[in-house]
Structures are given as C-alpha cells and as structure tokens.
C-alpha cells in the first residue's frame, strides 16, 4: 500500500548568523501492507512528522521515491492526495466553525457534491459519537472531542490510507482507549492506517507492525512480537530481604535455566532466563529447598523500550 525508498529531507534553519542543516529524515525505506495498522514509534524530533508530511504531499522530499496506494509521490502528487487522508499532529479545526461545517467543507474540498457531503458529515458525526456537539463551535470542545472531529475530517472522503500523526497525545487513558477502538474500526472498514506515536504501549497494543525511528532513520521494523523476540529472553525479578540475598544467589547461580544473575543493592535478584513462565516454578522450588523466604517474584518480559534500548543505546522513556 505504501512503499518508500530512500526518502530524505533536510531543513536549513537560521540561528543568529549561522545556517544550520538538520537532517530530519535520512533515507527511510518502508513497506506498509494493505489493511494493517502501521505504527511509527520514535522520540521527539525523530522525524516522524516530517516523513508523514512528505508522504502526504505537504513537503517535497529532497531525495528518494514513494508509491502510495498505487500513485507515485513525485510524479503524481494530485492523485496521492485523492487517495489519502491526513490528520496533522497539531490540530486542524477552526475555532469559530462547528464540527458539521468543517466536515461538509472538507468533503467538498475533495470535490464531493453538497448533498453527499452533508450526508457523509452526518454519518461521520454519528460514527464518532459527535452528533450531540455537531452544531457547537469547535472552540467549545474538549481535547478528546476535538481530536475525534479531526480524525473524522481525515476520513470523510473514504481514503484508502489515512495518516494519523499522534492521534492520542494529550488524551486521558479512557479517551485513548476509545480512540484505539475508533482506529481499529477504520481498519475493519478496510482502511490502511499509518499512525505515529511515542507511546510504547500504544505501538504494542494497537499496531500490527511498527517501525522504530530514531534520528531520522528506521532502526527496526517488524511486528511488536517479532521485535521483542529479537531481544532474547525474559527477566525474573526475585524480591528478597537483604540478609537472604547472598544465600539465594548461591543457590540459584549455576542452575541450568539461568543465563545470568545480578544482585540488587537493596536486596533481591535479577535472573536472565530464556522462558520466564517455565523458570519461575523452578526458582520457587529451589528457594524452598534452600529454606529461604521470598517476598515477591515478578516476570519482566522485554518491552519495545528494551528493543529501542538495544538498537540505539538510549531508553525511549528517558528521551
């Protein structure tokens, strides 16, 4: 559905007298299949928005090519525009207009006739549970309501692909969960959804496939499960009193399923194992044999953050 080869973009910005060049996107190759939710995960400034804006024909790439829903980005941007929807990161509604007006106008900007546009607007308002506020000015909406209007705008012309730039940033957990449902509904309706996010759990739970972006480059790509599997093994956190820790370390060190063992300064152990689920009963049995009481035991599966950490040497949470 989307295929990019070596997409590049740099910006020149002036700081005082010097001109600096920022290589925002440095050669991105992506393949997005039809009907999937594709996630673009990366920290602030990674180049997610810039890539999206290039794919949405808003800025011209410095280099590279892309085919989007069968249309060539460089040769036929007008056709690309007809086939995609785009919801920008920073909002796209006008304070003084109502949601219904915005939806009708936006549909008509795609060349849709007035009567049809009005029907589509009503249907979209219904689908996004906005009918109640439909004729109120946008400035009176809550953040979540406004975000729903913006997403409704992006799909009013039933595009094949919709790009959502950080659709859930700034929403409370409940609205986020709702938004995830909306996005899944779009996929059910046959749309390909391309979202950007810097939430790990969102990329993990919502996306069929993800690309992790850092510093203008895609550093990893695959399904969340695949990516996590690459970082081999689970971690078992064993909570122990400080006094019992050395004994426990002795008892567990050398067990065949323990790849590596670390003791924590405040007491307790970190065991690196291949398969947490089967290791835990063995750990419990071993500690019982040794007559040691444990306070807690916890299984830590590798997260996308661990993936990011291995690929870039930094944690996404910190950046």
């Amino acid at each position: 559905m989307i295929e990019t080869r070596g997409l590049r973009k740099s910006f020149r910005s002036r700081a005082g007298r010097e001109t600096k060049t920022v290589d925002a996107v440095r050669g991105v190759n992506l393949e997005v299949a039809e009907g999937e939710i594709f996630g673009f995960l990366g920290p602030n400034g990674a180049g997610k928005t810039t890539t999206l804006r290039m794919l949405a024909t808003l800025i011209e790439p410095d280099g590279g090519e892309a085919t989007i829903a069968g249309a060539d980005l460089r040769k036929d941007p007008a056709e690309v525009r007809r086939r995609i929807g785009y919801v920008p990161q920073g909002g796209s509604t006008w304070d003084e207009s109502t949601a219904r007006e915005e939806l009708v106008l936006h549909a008509r900007m795609y060349g849709i006739g007035k009567a049809d546009a009005q029907q589509r607007a009503s249907r979209a308002l219904d689908a996004f549970q906005l009918t109640e506020y439909a004729d109120r000015k946008c400035k009176t909406y809550s953040g979540g309501q406004r975000r729903r209007v913006e997403i409704a705008l992006g799909i009013i012309h039933e595009p094949k692909i919709v790009f959502l730039d950080e659709p859930t940033t700034g929403l409370d957990p409940q609205s986020r969960a709702h938004m995830w449902d909306e996005i899944r509904r779009l996929r059910r309706d046959g749309m390909t959804v391309f979202i950007t996010t810097h939430y790990l759990d969102e990329a993990d739970a919502l996306c069929d496939r993800i690309a992790i972006m850092d510093n203008g480059e895609v550093v990893a790509e695959g399904t969340p499960t695949e990516l996590k599997r690459e970082i081999s093994g689970d971690v078992v956190l064993v909570g122990l009193d400080l006094a019992a820790t050395p004994q426990a370390a002795q008892a567990l060190d050398g067990e065949p399923y323990v790849n590596k063992l670390e003791t924590a300064d405040e007491g307790g152990l970190r065991l690196y194992v291949d398969e947490g689920a089967t290791s835990i009963p063995q750990v419990l049995r071993r500690l019982d044999q040794a007559g040691l009481d444990l306070r807690s035991i916890e299984l830590h599966r590798p997260s996308l953050d661990d993936v990011f950490l291995t690929k870039t040497g930094r944690s996404l949470r910190e950046s």
Binding site: Y86, G90, T93, H157
Partner: peptide, 16 residues
C-alpha cells in the same frame, strides 16, 4: 491564525 490552527495544512492535503 488559520496557519496556526492547521486549517491551511488541512486544505493543502486535499486536491483543491
């Protein structure tokens, strides 16, 4: 003001 609200960008992704 429209630029800041994203209205122009939103218009520019359509074939208008």
């Amino acid at each position: 003001a429209e630029l800041r609200a994203g209205v122009i960008e939103r218009s520019r992704v359509t074939p208008i």
